[in-house]
Design a protein around this nucleic acid. Structure first.
Lengths: 338, 338
DNA sequence: TTGAAAGCGCTACCAT
DNA sequence: ATGGTAGCGCTTTCAA
């Protein structure tokens, strides 16, 4: 099964191979009659263009790489699914890499993926190795989910604001003793500022800070949370509402809460950051905040399209994807004096 | 920012470009000293090989594509993480696609990923469109997790056997009324055959068949399960043990069980298919079966290495990755007469 | 409108 | 051990 090349077609058609190339690529400068004849012969001979040869000469393609260096949990899973779905509708190839940023970019560079979308921690800062690789990377680069960088476009997610709003909402329905569980970072800050905005005191014991990292293993994390939550609940600062900073915190903590015979929302109202479908079918459907994945995907694809069309930005895009609280059954008003 | 080629390296190193090529590819015939010097220069210049040019002369690059067309849930998440980790240790680029098989293969072809690993349903059969794309695909193709195909190598997972063993285990610790919840397929069959092997009657009402598909939404699935399980539990065939066919079934069902005030394992022993870490920190750590992700990854990488070395298989690999039950707290012996 | 020639980056082959 | 040259399949001048 020997491969058919444009030279073979040229020979059969009695023309030269550049003419075949032009005909096949709809390049003007070939008589319509000749073009049709060539097209037909190509079809008959089952010609398949050699992408390697094409790519060697010209480097454009519609593709996009998603970098998820420490993707953990369901949010990223849904993000991948949605992005693939929408991108394929627009005829864009999506490849995802779970390698660290530098390595992922290098892989994309090798494999001709010329538009990269990276999800990084809010605290992320490009290190020298990354910056170097970034400079080598010829394509466009978009950071979503935060991270401070001048290197590319940024589609940020306002964690701070969203948690702040969550606090305000809880306050508006009568809660005064509001706790928070999560890692340090913008969500944590949003919690504190939310309290201040409502004229509530921030009490350190109502802040459950999770230290264990992903690689510590899930068992360790769960143990840590159970212990800390129990201390809070038995202590004198028992809250009436709790904000959790992510879906995976909810995963461990809601169980712990159940074990302690605490009812949601009767004894404790809960709001969770991360708008993933799974949280809507918890034993009690959870009120959530955080960016809507479809919105995020839409913005990324719009940006891709602009860049693909060759639009020149005077300066990198800086945009914040907002969202609103989704009320479900895990929050309820309380008598402020109770 | 112009691209660095082997000619650029050759110039700097004061050698010819074929020598650079040999040095970079570990081809014998280059003095060790020269090789080292070239390697260092290549690193300093941030050289990235042009995979298109390599492909044009039929040369492999160390890359691997993972196809996860309908990856849902945590198992795939952990699979991605582990594969990336182990592959990067061996200097293999991993790219993952969430597109359907045909589209994913096309994407890999266009991006010169020359080893594709696809996870497909056990019932999967390549359709004509897929087969056509497969023929175009230059690289090697491995199916993991099942699917019947002659097209490539198969690293199967023995769902049937694993569930069968789970039934036998439950029987061995005294259970006689064993139920199953999941989709139709090999796991389901394994359940029935397991019962038969133990001399137990298969009773249709003890089989909770889940019909709702992924895209029906998680709420629908949970509702369906709750209803069906409740019917079983209130009926005359109330089981003492239950096998769940996947992590996402557990996700909904364990909650339902809790709502019904049923204690695990006191009232009901549970075994869940899918060996993911999350199941070890459920309110009660779950006994699980199913392939160990590290084993799966190891086998894939071994196969990759063999193929990369140019090993010619007389016939496609057909292998089954086995595993054993992991006992945790969700199963307990019962008095057979109880 | 057409085609001859050059060249993309790489490896293989055969000199030296 | 090293390098010159050819060629993979294609597109792109540029001259006819």
């Amino acid at each position: 099964m020997t491969k058919v090349t444009i030279k073979d077609i040229a020979q059969v058609a009695g023309v030269s191979h550049p003419t075949v190339s032009k005909a096949l690529n709809n390049v003007p400068g070939v008589k319509e009659e000749t073009r049709q004849r060539i097209l037909q012969i190509a079809r008959q001979m089952d010609y398949v263009p050699n992408v390697a040869a094409k790519r060697l000469v010209n480097h454009k393609n519609r593709s996009m790489g998603l970098i998820l260096p420490h993707a953990k949990g369901l949010f990223f899973h849904h993000l991948c699914g949605r992005l693939e779905e929408e991108a394929s509708r627009r005829d864009i190839n999506v490849l995802v890499s779970f390698a660290d940023g530098r390595q992922a970019l290098k892989t994309f560079r090798e494999h001709f993926v010329d538009f990269a979308v990276g999800w990084f921690d809010p605290a992320w800062l490009p290190n020298p190795a990354f910056t170097k690789e970034w400079k080598l990377y010829q394509g466009q680069f978009v950071v979503i989910g935060g991270g401070n960088t001048e290197l590319g476009h940024v589609l940020d997610v306002d964690r701070f604001y969203q948690v702040q709003e969550a606090v305000k909402y809880l306050h508006s329905i009568g809660h005064r003793r509001i706790a928070f569980a999560g890692r340090e970072g913008p969500k944590c800050q949003g919690y504190i500022h939310g309290l201040m905005d409502c004229g509530l005191n921030y009490h350190p014991s109502r802040m459950i800070v999770i230290n264990s990292a992903y690689y510590d293993g899930i068992a360790r994390k769960k143990e840590e949370m159970r212990h800390k939550f129990n201390t809070l609940w038995q202590g004198k600062h028992r809250p009436t509402a709790l904000i959790m900073d992510s879906q995976d915190v909810a995963f461990s903590l809601v169980n712990t809460i159940g074990e302690l015979q605490i009812s949601i929302p009767e004894d404790l109202s809960i709001i969770c950051y991360d708008d993933v479908p799974e949280l809507s079918v918890y034993p009690v459907p959870l009120t959530v905040c955080g960016p809507a994945i479809p919105d995020l995907v839409q913005r990324v694809l719009d940006l891709y399209e602009q860049i693909y069309q060759g639009h020149q930005f005077k300066q990198p895009v800086r945009e914040v994807v907002t969202s609103k609280l989704i009320l479900r059954d895990s929050t309820r008003p309380i008598n402020p004096l109770c």
